[in-house]
Structure formats: structure tokens, C-alpha cells
């Protein structure tokens, strides 16, 4: 008799759990890949919800969302695309907010190739300079900003190679095919430390801040999981993870 009631309880709790647990699809800009994986896994443990992450270029996600892609949340690499979705009434009104401010770094896969300054760039001592395509990627726009400030556009242009997004730009540098590249600090940093190679973290004065916005999409309107994840992004736990990957804490920037 006792064992029956125990199993009834078990079945009941399983039913309750699945009734509350919710699957959500989340589109995430490439630069935010590493922190988002960590944040999502913490969130899954804490809430019991299941998060399916897709990583890619923000522009691609924007086009896909416009054409009915089944995402509940969108974490863009910029502010323009979420704002555009808002104007097109594809998001839940008032859900747009800045979740992170990205930092740009000049990076080489070789130890000691660059010091914490732009000297090697200015001396043109490198074969190729990898930059995310500025037409498509906000980190590419920021990189062009920096080169403009250093008056290096014309002198380095013949050595540019464009990555389709910031992930591919990183790949060009990490395989050694480009000596240098402008990447997201989040790609080369872990637990507050440079993972490999050498880098120059670019001073904020040299480029417009890379504010990254997230939105709750129409299809996520009735999803408690999507709303819970948005709330979770604003917790200290989530912010600590973002900071450990080199994103600036939001309190300082707003």
C-alpha cells in the first residue's frame, strides 16, 4: 500500500514538473556564446526549464525572425536589430533591454606578439588583420572605429580579411592564418584571464560602446521560461559570469 502511494507521489511530481518545465529557443549573437552557455546551464539547473541555444550572426537571426523563425528570445550583438524588430512590432512591447556591453580586443594567437599597446599595428608588422565584416557585425564596426582613430584605415586596408561574424574572425587568428585580429574580449578571456596568445584590450575612448540588446519575441509572450530567463539575466549570478568573460557590468554603463 505504502509503495503504491509513493509511486503515485512520484508520478504526480513528475507530471507537475513537466507541466511547469518549458522548452525555449534562444537566438544568441556569436560573441556571447561562451557566457550564454554557462548562464543557460545555471538557469536550467535552477528552474528545470530547458533552453535550446542557437548561435550565429545577429543579422541572420534578424532576417530569420522576420520570416517566422521559432525563437522565443533574441540576444543581439547590437541595438539596431532589436530596435528594428520593435518598430516592426515583432517583440513584446517594453521587453527590449541592454544585457551586456561588449569590449573589443586586438588579439594574436602567438605569445608576446603584441604588448598591451597598438605598436605592432602602427608599425605594420603583421601579415593579415582579421576584422568582422563591418557591414554585418557590430564588432566589425567598432574595429573600423579604432582604425579610424589611429589613422590606419588606408595603411592597413590591403591586409584586411573579413570574417563573416566575430566567431569566424577569431578562427582566422587562432589558426594562425592572420597574425592579428579584432575580436570580442569574451572570446579570448575566461575567468577574468587571457586564455592564450597576446592581446591589447582597446581603450573605450577609441570606439562607440558595443551595447548589446535582448528582446522577448512575440512567440515567447506566454512562455514563463522565456520571461524567467530574461529576469535571470539581470541577477548578480549572471552578471558575474558576463564579467568573467570580459563584458562590462551594466551598472557602470547605464
Amino acid at each position: 500500500m505504502g509503495s503504491i502511494s509513493v509511486s503515485c507521489l512520484l508520478v504526480l511530481s513528475l507530471l507537475l514538473h513537466t507541466a511547469h518545465a518549458d522548452d525555449i529557443n534562444v537566438a544568441v549573437a556569436s560573441n556571447f556564446t561562451a557566457p550564454m552557455k554557462e548562464i543557460a546551464s545555471l538557469f536550467e539547473h535552477a528552474s528545470g526549464h530547458k533552453v535550446r541555444l542557437s548561435f550565429g550572426a545577429s543579422g541572420k537571426f534578424y532576417a530569420q525572425i522576420k520570416h517566422g523563425a521559432p525563437f522565443h528570445l533574441f540576444f543581439s550583438a547590437d541595438q539596431q536589430k532589436p530596435a528594428q524588430l520593435e518598430r516592426e512590432e515583432l517583440i513584446v512591447p517594453g521587453s527590449r533591454f541592454t544585457y551586456a556591453v561588449g569590449q573589443l580586443a586586438l588579439w594574436s594567437a602567438q605569445e608576446g606578439f603584441i604588448k598591451a599597446n597598438p605598436d605592432r599595428l602602427l608599425a605594420l608588422q603583421f601579415n593579415k588583420l582579421a576584422i568582422a565584416n563591418p557591414k554585418l557585425a557590430p564588432y566589425g564596426v567598432a574595429a573600423i572605429d579604432v582604425l579610424e582613430h589611429l589613422a590606419l584605415i588606408d595603411r592597413t586596408k590591403s591586409r584586411w580579411v573579413h570574417g563573416e561574424n566575430i566567431a569566424q574572425t577569431y578562427q582566422f587568428v587562432s589558426t594562425g592564418n592572420a597574425d592579428l585580429g579584432f575580436v570580442a574580449l569574451s572570446q579570448i578571456m575566461k575567468e577574468g584571464r587571457l586564455k592564450a596568445g597576446s592581446s591589447w584590450i582597446i581603450p573605450e575612448a577609441l570606439y562607440t560602446p558595443i551595447k548589446q540588446d535582448a528582446v522577448l519575441l512575440r512567440s515567447g509572450e506566454d512562455s514563463p521560461a522565456a520571461q524567467a530567463l530574461l529576469r535571470f539575466m539581470k541577477t548578480e549570478q549572471a552578471e558575474a559570469i558576463m564579467q568573467s568573460y570580459g563584458y562590462k557590468p551594466l551598472a557602470r554603463t547605464q
Binding site: G59, A63, N133, K135, L136, G163, E164, F172
Partner: peptide
């Protein structure tokens, strides 16, 4: 390719860029 005009930016990549940039 690295998407370099006149060197590695072929038609298919150019189309991809156009589509991505809307």
C-alpha cells in the same frame, strides 16, 4: 576566403553579404 573584394569575394559570397545586410 576572408571576403576580400577582387581577390576572394565571389558571386555567391557577394549574394550572401547582400542578403545578410538586408
Amino acid at each position: 576566403g576572408g571576403n576580400i573584394p577582387g581577390e576572394t569575394r565571389v558571386i555567391s559570397v557577394q549574394i550572401y553579404d547582400h542578403v545578410e545586410a538586408l
